[in-house]
Write a protein that binds this DNA or RNA. Structure first.
Lengths: 160, 160
DNA sequence: CTAGATTAGTTGCACCAACAACCAATGACC
DNA sequence: GGTCATTGGTTGTTGGTGCAACTAATCTAG
């Protein structure tokens, strides 16, 4: 890297603001969920991914891919969610190494209860701050960045 | 919240992708710095803020504001950076409660050495994935979101 | 001048997450 | 069919981070 390609003034301005957003937004989303629901954002996201899966069941490693979590992290989170009664772990019949994680009725109700405030927060901090045109632009921009950050689309597996 | 205002299909599409970016980008930036320089992204950012300050000196609480860190967090990070010889803490003459944190020559050299690869990573993952027009759009979008996330512009203090 | 309130920073404690080591089950190959 | 590599998941250990409690210095009011 003998001749670093520095950012132009315009690029630098965009980057500084966008980096600040990337720093502040996750903390803000987490704070709302912890305060209102006693869930971390990761907890909520994991429950939400389960709620959208067919039969509300996923194998542990499939859930880990959708949530961008390591298996050790997810293992401990699932223990906590299971203790709270929101998920249930059962041996997989086809592959007895694997575990099927299912959303319980209580877990479903938790997601349903938490969703409105969470969506309202997403609206307040992101969507409603933008024009319709900007929402469209942000979608295209995010798609472009994701092609670099996640070429295999692991995080969007549930969308395909 | 009796009538939650759900996201439209287009808004939801944008949000899912953007949330994935917000999840993956910080980890990617951190990984590059840890691998290449043995610095966390927070370490690097703190050193960078010091390097841009007049005289390369800031009070602990001013640095905390610029880096969006709590005082306890920054206190421990500074202990680590001081042990590494990159910063120096000295009592403030005017207010003996306060601490002036200064970047050492070694710390300056560390930032200068780390910057090119870091900037190259920002280019690779963000800037170069976008058209010039999209860079402009992302600047405006980030500005709009920041007005919700950080109305007092604490994180942009060094820019004003 | 002195008592109480506020501010700057550090430290005790508890929790969370990463890495590595580990166990169990499966698949691959001869 | 038996050995070896691979995969799915859990647990030990370590390091980071937030909150609350604490110390010390400064400011404010009477």
């Amino acid at each position: 890297m003998n001749q670093p390609h520095w950012l132009s003034a315009k690029e630098r301005d965009t980057w500084i603001r966008f980096a600040a957003v990337a720093e502040l937004l996750p903390a803000a989303l987490n704070l709302q969920l912890v305060n209102d629901e006693g869930l971390t954002h990761f907890d909520y996201y994991a429950l939400a991914m389960l709620s959208e899966a067919p039969g509300r069941v996923l194998r542990t490693s499939a859930l880990a891919a959708r949530t961008n979590a390591t298996l050790p992290r997810l293992s401990r989170v699932l223990s906590r969610l299971e203790d709270a009664g929101w998920v249930h772990r059962a041996e997989c019949e086809q592959d007895r190494r694997a575990t099927n994680v299912s959303l319980t009725q209580s877990g479903w109700e938790k997601v349903v209860a938490a969703a409105p405030n969470h969506v309202a927060t997403v609206r307040r901090l992101v969507i409603d701050a933008l024009t319709d045109e900007q929402v469209e632009q942000l979608g295209a921009i995010s798609r472009a960045m994701l092609s670099r950050l996640d070429p295999e689309c692991r995080m969007l597996a549930s969308e395909r």
